[in-house]
């Protein structure tokens, strides 16, 4: 049964399958490993509050409807160090490092999004 199906695959077909598989594995490794972020985009109330490079360690205070959220940038990573939101999800999320990672503090409407150097202009978010 299997041999009957496989006999329709010629040598070139096997090569195609092989190189296709290798290509997919490489593509997956490249796309899913993610690149390290270069900057953090801090939003408050949906609007961009600041875009900060990760190269300099600093603390940023962002005022939201509930109070002040403190964002810490250290060692090319960023986290929300403190936030007045009741459930503290964004604080517990911890350090963000990879491009595309995002921490949202919802009632306080503060978010930190990590962006890589190749981040494209995004017409959905603006």
């Amino acid at each position: 049964m299997y041999s009957m199906a496989l006999q329709h695959i010629k040598i070139g077909d096997w090569l195609t399958i092989l190189f296709g598989s290798i290509g997919i594995v490489m593509l997956t490794l490249k796309l899913w490993n993610g690149e390290l972020a270069d900057k953090a985009i801090i939003r408050s109330g949906g609007k961009i509050f600041r875009e900060v490079p990760l190269s300099r360690d600093q603390q940023i205070e962002v005022r939201g409807p509930l109070g002040i959220s403190i964002i810490t940038i250290q060692n090319r990573k960023a986290r929300i160090a403190s936030d007045p939101s009741p459930r503290q999800y964004c604080v517990r999320q911890g350090w963000l490092q990879q491009a595309g990672e995002i921490a949202l503090c919802l009632p306080n409407q503060v978010s930190v999004e990590m962006a890589g150097s190749k981040k494209q202009y995004d017409s959905l978010n603006y």
Partner: peptide, 9 residues
Amino acid sequence: WFGAVSHSI
């Protein structure tokens, strides 16, 4: 060397 399988892929 190349059949319908290659075309399809």
